[in-house]
Design a protein around this nucleic acid. Structure first.
Lengths: 256, 256
DNA sequence: CGTCTCACG
DNA sequence: CGTGGGACG
């Protein structure tokens, strides 16, 4: 099972840059997109449907903002839009597809970069999210693959300049601790599992100052798997040569 | 004296498309621009100043909206920004430069196309403008050259589809009458003076549906001259091959 | 820097 | 259709 998570920074923009052609070649079984930045009407996903995908959209209430979408070759057993909390569901941040043996939770976590207010919102979200995941487990949801733009990372090797970013949203001590706690809850970072302490692997680069060309980036996009699924991790990669967005896709191949 | 009026639909956009290079070649003595859509700070007119022009800007209060600018090789005897009525001056619509023997009044008249409210505003403006011009004459202003985007025209031959536009803003009976009255006040439409009843000469084409390629346009940009100056009209042209905007420049060569 | 919505034309 | 702003990232 080939699962790809990709923050497309505007699905229409990504489609205009050849997203469909790339998906045809990459051929993921499940494709989790974040920041689709469009609702159902302005969006034309027929190109992806023509490749055989079932399309599930969870846009934000505010036009042109946030939103997630998951595309699946296999028809899921169940689809759950949102997390049941309007505060977050209005921002289109979570979308779950259940399959036999695993559940794919597509998530776009808030960015804290626009100011302290949004950073506070993000931190509240992070704590909410851990509780939410625990509740899903308790409710008997199949073992989770959590794929998405986490807007944070855990270790010094997850960003180009850890020293300068000790207090930057996405790498504050609080967020790093949170990430560690989430892993301790029983999740495996599939990229680290497969690549160990490899450095210089990032999934986001600011558009400014030629950061991507110089590989001045952050690893913000993750595919975590329930500890039950860990033995099934076959491959896990970032795909930095794929350029429809300021993020690149993260990929996980699971033996199921 | 070579005078050009040009609605640039965003001066920054026009500059990015090579406006300075074109101005160097056209070499007008006075250049009246409308819809500069920027204030003094975001604007860099050093390219035009480097050609030897004195720059006079009258931006709107609202950023990115309306605004006129006049560039002159000769330093004018006087410069008058606005018309003294805040309602109009907030929208950056008139800018007068006085020279020995003539005064160039750069004007961007309101468009009525966004709705009946703005059309009513436009009609009030039109009547205000005739009074204003009469007051200028009475005050002993040198004979006027009125150059700008009038956002209206007078005769059937001034637009591609007069039948279908009898009630369209820019060609309502009320506006056509107003135009005729303005001419009767003692002004000459320099283009008609030079070209008689020539057809198919327009200065604006909608961006939609390839209208410019099919020459489906309107003659909205005019250079009127005081009856005193009429004998001095040497040439008057539209320059439809000049493409920095959805308008083209209008040119007048005056014998002074 | 880039994508999106909105006002305006 | 296209410019320019502002929100957001």
């Amino acid at each position: 099972m080939n699962i790809i998570s990709y923050n497309v920074n505007g699905l229409r923009s990504a489609l205009s840059k050849g997203l469909v052609e790339w998906v045809r070649e990459a051929s993921p079984d499940v494709l989790c997109l974040q920041e689709i930045k469009a609702g159902r009407e302005p969006l034309d996903v027929s190109g992806l449907e023509a490749l055989g995908y079932h399309a599930y959209l969870h846009p934000a209430r505010k036009p042109g903002y946030s939103g997630v979408a998951t595309f699946s070759k296999q028809k899921p057993l169940a689809v759950v839009e949102g997390c049941g909390t309007a505060l977050y569901d209005d921002e289109g941040r979570v979308l779950r597809l259940d399959f036999p043996g695993c559940s794919v939770l597509n998530v776009y976590m808030p960015s804290g970069t626009s100011g302290p207010e949004r950073q506070a919102f993000k931190v509240e979200w992070l704590h909410f999210f851990r509780r939410y995941v625990r509740e899903l487990q308790a409710a008997g949801t199949p073992p989770l693959v959590i794929g998405g733009d986490f807007n944070c990372c855990q270790r010094d090797i997850d960003l180009h300049n850890p020293k300068a970013n000790q207090q930057s949203p996405g790498f504050t001590p609080e967020e790093r601790q949170w990430f560690q706690d989430l892993l301790a809850d029983g999740y495996t970072d599939s990229f680290r599992h497969h690549h160990g302490d490899a450095t210089g692997h990032y999934s986001w680069w600011t558009y400014r100052a030629g950061a991507r060309a110089r590989n001045v980036g952050w690893r913000l996009d993750h595919l975590l798997v329930d500890r039950e699924l860990q033995p099934r991790i076959q491959e896990a990669h970032l795909l930095p040569d794929v350029v429809h967005s300021d993020h690149c896709p993260a990929q996980l191949v699971l033996n199921v």
